[in-house]
Design a protein around this nucleic acid. Structure first.
Lengths: 238, 238
DNA sequence: CGAGCATTTGACACGTTTCAATCTCTGTGG
DNA sequence: CCACAGAGATTGAAACGTGTCAAATGCTCG
């Protein structure tokens, strides 16, 4: 099923489920229409004004910000259920949103979401919590680039992805599909593609992880968690 | 004046001012009491449950997160008007909140803020925007540690602080008080104190900035902005 | 089958860290 | 009011992790 109402979405969302008590559905008119994007296509460009809010229905998105010299940093890879595009003000976008894999997005005009918020209080609550969680994720990402070396940084990221995907049943037995190229991984981790390659090789040699043909498999969670200093608390949804 | 109501605060806040239209003040009972903390004291510890929300009235706060090996990353240095402690869930805190300078904080139980939100819609709106702005700041911080070298990273941070302080008239003529030690700067920038020292020395030699005796002065904004690739758009409040 | 992109590997360069010593403040007690 | 203690700032030399450049190999899709 590709289309649904916002209320249906909220109920199905890990954050929203616990918040939705009354069933008045005053804004069930707010239909969510899924829009499909091909892998590598651009949804919204840094610097351009875009007042839409997106919610990932399926696929891997990519939120990145570029420097003048052409370097870029990938801020996050939003996955199913993640909300994108909540900016404080009606100004140009801070980052570019694109599709890593084929991507399906719900699209809501910011204004419509704001009105819906006024009609249904838990929605605003949910929004706030969703952004607060993004904050946690960003914080940990910052820890990564600021204070962890290539090995534990990479390990940490791969564990985070597994945890986030698990919340939607998209990972099992430590195995998940990951369409990221090593170049993209580098832009996430603040490293060079070459060094990412060596790091992955090292992790493979230590039998901690396998990453090939678009699939990641955690071989030794224990070793990996120790190396990364990973504590999933920051990802908690409820 | 040290104490005020939440409504008064919102009206005086750059974000809130534009949002507050009706004057019904249904929650004027929500008194903000400023609490004073000595420099270097700890307000709230990483890993402990703390359901308070803080708003900086004056001074420099420090939000940091520690690694097992003892390293730490300073996530942000909240300044006047900044809101701290909005976490998605009632779990242990992600980071430690402490005082860099003498610090004055408003303190609100999360629950009280949530109720106030239900009574006065613009408040929730303001909260959302405040967190969204933190998100922008975090994003840029991530760019810094991920993709900028020591020189432009340092330059960028010093420009950001000037911009943020300016919003409250706490910087003028490119000059502002900055109680940060080089050790703390290092933990913000993801560098070593030694290297921060060399970097500041270099910036001084290039006549871009002066930083001594707790005061920062931008000597050549033009050169600094070019070096940092600084664009203040991400800090916009309204 | 070939084109083009992603991965892998090697050698070397460079930015940042590490370790250790010295210097400069600033506040304090005698 | 001066001397001292302790923290922060500064400097140097060497080590180390990551980046750079370039070439080779392996995939995947038309």
């Amino acid at each position: 099923m590709h289309n649904q109402t916002l209320l249906q979405f909220i109920k199905s969302h890990p954050i929203g489920a616990s918040l939705t008590r009354d069933e008045s559905e005053p804004y069930s008119f707010l239909k969510l229409v899924a829009k499909e994007y091909k892998a590598h296509s651009i949804v919204s460009r840094q610097g351009e004004v875009d007042t839409r809010i997106f919610i990932v229905q399926s696929g891997w998105a990519c939120l990145q910000r570029g420097l003048q010299n052409g370097d870029r940093q990938i801020i996050d890879t939003p996955l199913r259920g993640d909300i994108i595009g909540v900016r404080a003000v009606d100004g140009p976008s801070i980052a570019t949103l694109s599709a890593i894999s084929d991507l399906s997005l719900f699209e809501i005009p910011r204004r419509a979401l704001a009105s819906a918020t006024l009609l249904h209080r838990p929605l605003g609550n949910m929004l706030t919590r969703a952004i607060a969680r993004q904050n946690s994720i960003l914080t940990e990402h910052l820890m990564n680039t600021g204070r962890r070396n290539a090995m534990s940084r990479t390990a940490h990221f791969l564990l985070e992805m597994e945890e986030r995907l698990s919340a939607y049943g998209l990972a099992s037995g430590g195995r998940y599909e990951c369409p990221l190229t090593q170049q993209e991984l580098a832009d996430i981790l603040g490293l060079t593609p070459v060094h990412v390659n060596r790091t992955l090789g090292e992790l493979r040699k230590l039998e901690m992880i396998s990453f090939k043909a678009g699939w990641v498999e955690v071989l030794s969670r224990k070793k990996l968690v120790a190396l990364a200093g990973f504590d999933k608390e920051y990802l908690r949804l409820m």
